[in-house]
Design a protein around this nucleic acid. Structure first.
Lengths: 343, 343
DNA sequence: CTGTTAGCGCCTTCAC
DNA sequence: GTGAAGGCGCTAACAG
């Protein structure tokens, strides 16, 4: 507990018999300063282990080098992946990431925004909650001159840059993959109709069917409300009760696919031979479940990296214009649940 | 982009014809100040939406209200649960959590510590990497007068308070549960002998056997190096090759248990009837896998809450003494992989 | 009860 | 090339 007072510029200046401002400038190798002086000060600083007082610097520059990051859930494979990417990228430029979660409640999201505001982050990255249909609490950041970027779950009408996954392409490639496996009756367990990501995946699904002359049939569609395993199980049972059940199912999410797999196992239906399955998000569980699950990877880490990088660019250069929308491509990860052995 | 300059105490003072310090004191209802003045200032502040400049306040008080949190891995069910608890608890007192990950490398951990130091967090919570056998980089915080708390993966010799799970009790109750199910030949796939948590679980296992007059047999023990699914699979195969294979396996972690389950499925051995399984950590996968996995829950959220709470207490009151070791009890979560149907 | 004063550590004109 | 001085916004000791 030495609790030694930290060395300040003033100390250096006094010890070296120069002024504080000279010391300050020397440390950043200001062109006005003589080489010798610069060396002298730098040596002294190195020797005595001088560390500038960041709090003072930030105060002086009225910034914190903190970036707020609000996600619906922290304990969630995709979001923690995004966070991981954000943190790693932010660190490179000396920024910190302050994480907060909304638990998918609007009220919590608003509180999180206020907290972020109060701890005066320099900018904000946000993935909105399921309940957020209006972004006044987000616009306040803009009002304060703090840049904001939305990612993944976005509010489309909000005039704020967005980093998203190309869900359309994801839906398309998932479906096309099933078609390529020879499936003809491809069902889709979709998400809520008012959620953008879900709609895009559906559009991709439809386009793929259309491109391959497969008719779209309403009986092969179900909409999840809570995006749960139970819904997957239940809907799969409904599909099986159809006169002409599907031979493949594309699920809005891996968790739903898990429910589907359970239902099929219960009935003793073989995957992928009788029914092939594709999920979405490529969670950890996709590798773990048996049979392992073909899924669409959303590059969460990359999304975190990209969002942070753009925000920091804006922070360091007011004139930088963040592109309005950045779409990351998805990647089809093929596993056992969808690959039919060639007959 | 109004970019309006924020209201400061000076503005309030000038508008109200009082001094800055009076305004400052009035806002915190200092006893010296007249009730009327307090009212007047507070009303004015409320009306004009005055928000103190946190950066200035922190500078003045030379603190950041940021707490560093270093974990081996961010994308990890247990650690993200801990983080979630920390963040929620910290928010209550107006603290922020800065998360960093070591990827289980000592070098990364040291860098993370330096970064934390540089962004001058007020205190540190750390769960060490697998490679950390020496804590000089951690002690630096103490030297700077910044309190530190270790949690979960700890360096025992470090004279720094610890919040841990009672692994001994966890190992004991997992084993006892298997004994209660009628198992007589209980194997244990353990962790590295030099990792504290793993040793404690082993001790609990041995004690439970001993308390129930079951002999400990070295042939039923295996030690993981990387704590992976593959190791679980391989060790289970080794067990099965024994002249007298076990009728139950207690695994150091759910992931290892998953490998064990795979091996058993491959051989067509029924779980739990022929061999019962218990994991440890109660990850998400424990619910998901089939059969669902009995496991030991470590109360990650609670651990985050407790660690933060103690650190903040110390921060707000220098005289507060953080207890040297706090052990959280585990909880046995019984699922299908271990419950034998009564004959 | 209130105002004055003096910084916290650093950066940045402005002057020499 | 270097130094002096002012100030970022807020707090707190010290006067009145």
């Amino acid at each position: 507990m030495s609790e030694r007072r930290k060395l300040t510029l003033k100390d250096i200046a006094k010890d070296l018999g120069i002024s504080v401002s000279t010391a300050s400038r020397a440390l950043k190798a200001h062109p006005d300063i003589a080489q010798e002086t610069i060396q002298m000060v730098k040596d002294y600083a190195a020797k005595h282990n001088y560390v500038p007082n960041i709090i003072a610097v930030n105060f002086r520059k009225s910034r914190t080098k903190n970036i707020g990051l609000i996600v619906p859930e922290l304990v969630h494979h995709f979001f923690s992946t995004v966070i991981s990417g954000s943190i790693d990228e932010a660190k490179k430029s000396g920024y910190n990431i302050l994480v907060s979660q909304s638990n998918d409640f609007l009220a919590d999201e608003i509180v999180a925004c206020k907290t972020m505001m109060a701890s005066s982050v320099d900018g904000l990255l946000i993935s909105i909650s399921n309940e957020t249909y209006d972004g006044d609490h987000i616009l306040e950041f803009i009002d304060e001159g703090k840049p904001v970027i939305q990612f993944d779950k976005i509010l489309e009408k909000l005039p704020v840059p967005k980093v998203i996954v190309d869900d359309f392409e994801g839906g398309y490639s998932a479906t096309k993959h099933l078609i390529d496996q020879g499936c003809k009756r491809i069902a889709h367990i979709a998400g809520r109709k008012d959620v953008l990501n879900a709609c895009e995946r559906m559009k991709g699904y439809k386009k793929a069917l259309n491109d391959h002359q497969i008719p779209f049939k309403e009986e092969y569609i179900r909409y999840c409300e809570s995006i749960s395993e139970e819904e997957g199980e239940q809907f799969m049972e409904e599909f099986l009760a159809l006169p002409n059940p599907p031979d493949a199912v594309f699920c809005i999410t891996d968790l739903v696919a898990l429910g589907v797999i359970k239902a099929l196992k219960n009935k003793g239906i073989s995957i992928p031979d009788q029914i092939a399955i594709v999920g979405f998000s490529n969670w950890k569980l996709a590798e773990i479940v048996s049979p392992s699950l073909t899924s669409i990877d959303q590059h969460g880490y990359q999304m975190g990296v990209v969002a942070v990088r753009m925000l920091i660019q804006k922070l360091e250069d007011k004139n930088f214009e963040i592109p309005d929308t950045l779409e990351l491509k998805t990647r089809l990860v093929i596993r056992d649940s969808s690959v039919k052995v060639k007959a």
